[in-house]
Design a protein around this nucleic acid. Structure first.
Length: 215
DNA sequence: ATTTTCAAT
């Protein structure tokens, strides 16, 4: 396994700084991606792997993950041999920022060729999603449409904390994770926003709205 | 009310 990936788990302070789900995250000029990889190696056998990445050299962290995915997920891609059996993977990401438009596009292209890979993404904060017509919003919808489950992490805070706990455990930090005070409030706001983004107005709704306006 | 953003200095 690549030693860079093997890594060094995210130190607690850095983790909390980058994963705080506040509205105005000043100074987070980096993005972290903690991942959990679940691999089905047999009918009753799963293996797990986890770690984290950070964007580097102008490469967004999502694309960095794709660059390493062959090493992280042996048997995922396959070599196209006849009757070749590809392994099934479930991958969970915890991203400090949601993916940019370009990463969403590239991810969608990648995933659409791999029915044996399920990806879900938990995000701490939405990246450039304030404008109604932002390309980032469009990108998130694209991901959803090809089956990526994307949500903020409060809905599965248990997984998140387990991940965090194991991370801290490996670092010999006995401290229990203490959520920041605004975590819940922030995640409620984020959930609403994400929901609005992922469920855009249907034509039906517009029709109703037009009727209501007498148009 | 307004604030930031996978930097660039």
């Amino acid at each position: 396994m690549n030693t860079k990936l093997d890594s060094v788990l995210l130190p607690r302070k850095k983790f909390i700084y980058h994963y705080k789900n506040m509205r105005w995250a000043k100074g987070r000029h980096e993005t972290y991606l903690c991942f959990v990889i679940k691999r089905r190696v047999g009918p009753d056998t799963l293996t797990f792997d986890f770690g984290h990445l950070r964007n580097r050299n102008g490469c967004h962290v999502e694309l960095l993950f794709l660059r390493y995915v062959g090493a992280l997920c042996p048997g995922l891609l396959g070599y196209g041999g006849p009757g070749e059996k590809r392994l099934s993977y479930s991958i969970t990401w915890f991203c400090s920022w949601s993916p940019c438009a370009n990463c969403s596009t590239r991810l969608s292209q990648f995933l659409s060729r791999l029915p044996n890979l399920r990806l879900r993404i938990f995000v701490s904060r939405l990246y450039f999603c304030d404008m109604e017509d932002s390309r980032e919003r469009e990108g998130l919808r694209m991901l959803k449409n090809i089956g990526v489950q994307i949500t903020n992490y409060k809905e599965r805070i248990d997984i998140f904390l387990i991940y965090l706990g194991s991370t801290l455990g490996r670092l010999s930090h006995p401290k229990i994770f203490k959520a920041w005070g605004e975590l819940h409030q922030n995640s409620v706001r984020l959930s609403r926003k994400l929901k609005r983004i992922l469920q855009p107005l249907e034509t039906e709704d517009l029709r109703d709205a037009f009727k209501l306006l007498g148009l």
